[in-house]
């Protein structure tokens, strides 16, 4: 998994006054487990776009950390 992805997730959590996420795996669910609401996901999207140059929500909803990771990997190979 891209280590910067975990850092960006923690940045969004920090803005919500939440501690860094622990035990995040590819299966971790963004909404249910990390507690990200729609506005938090929008913030995460733009942080990922700035770091990796890809809009991860441009082509539909994403549920897990692993799906985000895959989209970043695919964008990097283009």
């Amino acid at each position: 998994m891209h280590s910067d992805l975990l850092r960006l997730i923690d940045e969004v959590r920090a803005n919500k006054k939440q501690p860094p996420a622990s035990g995040v795996t590819r299966a971790t669910r963004l909404r249910e487990e990390l507690g990200f609401a729609s506005l938090d996901l929008a913030e995460l999207t733009v942080r990922i776009e700035e770091r990796f140059g890809v809009d991860v929500f441009a082509d539909g909803l994403v549920q897990t950390v692993g799906e985000l990771d895959d989209k970043i990997t695919r964008a990097g190979k283009k």
């Binding site: 803005n15 929008a42 913030e43 999207t45 733009v46 942080r47 776009e49 700035e50």
Partner: peptide, 9 residues
């Protein structure tokens, strides 16, 4: 613009 505002808080 909103995305920029989100990024820069």
């Amino acid at each position: 613009v909103i995305r920029q505002m989100l990024l820069k808080q």
